[in-house]
Structures are given as structure tokens and as C-alpha cells.
């Protein structure tokens, strides 16, 4: 990126996979580097309860499910997904199916006008977990944003630690 980013969108695809320990990495995360330029920050999550001080937080958890998601629930796909999750081959099959977290996030993101607008306005989109990758990748692929990155070291964004002197998460 030649000029400093004006708007950074941070995507959390999973409710529970973001590892707080990531903030203790010695390597600087890409997000942390970008924050040095003080861009506007929008965080998109699916119900992650964190204090994203100084950032706009768009929470997709409150949105009504799409027709596809309602249909999947109606046919019991959730129960099958949960059963498959308990063994390796099942997890592999789940990763190709409609209830894969990456696909769920993408369906929710494209239905939400504010999220779509944020992605289209972003100079950089950061996917902080594997479930956020598809949405970030498609946003770049469709020309909504010029740059998209997978940055697992940013997974602790919005967290701080009680451990004295630890490398705390970026909060602004």
C-alpha cells in the first residue's frame, strides 16, 4: 500500500476461535502496523463480545437469518454438522458444506447493507480467523476493497490482558 489506509475493516468470522494468546506474539501483526496510521476502523463480528474502543462495531448476530439458513435449520443440517464435527473426515466434509463458518459469514455479510458498505469503503480488509477468510477474499475479488489479508496475530484485537508487561492487544 503506497498511502496510509483511511479505513480498515477487521473481520471476525468465528465467535470463539479468536485466540487471545495471539496478542502475546513477538511478531508485529499487520493490523497493528496499520493502526500506527490512525485509520478509521470498523469491526465486523457475529456476536463477539469485546470492547472495540475507538472502532465502529457491526454485529451480524442480531440479523434475521437468510432463507438459506432458515431452510438448513428446517432440514436438520445443523444436527448433521454437529455430528460431523466430532471426527476428522467429518470436519473435512463440513468445510465443504453450507454451514461452514466462512460461508455462513459471507451470507450474513452480503445481506447486511452497513457491512457491505463498510467492505466497499475499506482500503484494507483484515480477516483475523479462518472463518473470515472467504468474506475478505471475495470482497477483494469483487473489487470492493483493493487489499485483503489473513492476519491471525490480530485475533486479540479488542482484548487486553491482566498479565503485567505482556504485549497487549492493540485497542485503538
Amino acid at each position: 500500500m503506497s498511502s496510509p489506509p483511511r479505513h480498515v475493516v477487521v473481520l471476525f468470522g468465528s465467535k470463539g476461535s479468536a485466540s487471545p494468546g495471539s496478542s502475546l506474539a513477538a511478531e508485529t501483526s499487520r493490523l497493528r502496523s496499520l493502526l500506527q496510521e490512525h485509520p478509521r476502523v470498523t469491526v465486523i463480528t457475529r456476536g463477539l463480545e469485546r470492547d472495540f474502543a475507538g472502532a465502529d462495531h457491526l454485529d451480524l448476530a442480531a440479523d434475521a437469518p437468510s432463507a438459506v439458513d432458515r431452510a438448513l435449520v428446517a432440514v436438520g443440517a445443523g444436527r448433521l454438522h454437529a455430528r460431523l464435527r466430532s471426527f476428522p473426515l467429518g470436519r473435512l466434509l463440513n468445510s465443504l458444506g453450507p454451514l461452514d463458518e466462512g460461508r455462513v459469514l459471507w451470507r450474513a455479510a452480503r445481506r447486511n447493507g452497513a457491512v457491505r458498505a463498510a467492505l466497499k469503503d475499506a482500503d484494507v480488509v483484515i480477516a483475523v480467523d479462518a472463518a473470515a477468510v472467504k468474506t475478505a477474499w471475495l470482497a477483494r475479488r469483487r473489487g470492493w476493497t483493493p487489499e485483503a489479508y489473513y492476519d491471525h496475530r490480530a485475533a486479540s484485537f479488542g482484548l487486553s490482558f491482566g498479565v503485567d508487561g505482556s504485549t497487549v492487544a492493540p485497542t485503538s
Binding site: 485466540s19 487471545p20 494468546g21 502475546l24 506474539a25 513477538a26 498479565v163 508487561g165
Partner: peptide, 30 residues
């Protein structure tokens, strides 16, 4: 020191150290 052998630190070790924060235990990074 590093928390685990990989670039992404071991969250379990971090959480365990945090439990003893009030006992004068501090993690000061690599």
C-alpha cells in the same frame, strides 16, 4: 520466553499464567 513453539502463541499457557497474576507472577514476553 515464547508461549509455545509456533508463531501463534499457546493460549492455554497464557491463560494459566494469568491465573497467578495476583501471586506476583508476570509474563514479560519473549
Amino acid at each position: 520466553g515464547r508461549l509455545g513453539h509456533f508463531a501463534e502463541p499457546d493460549a492455554h499457557a497464557a491463560a494459566l499464567l494469568e491465573q497467578y497474576h495476583d501471586d506476583g507472577v508476570a509474563y514479560l514476553g519473549p
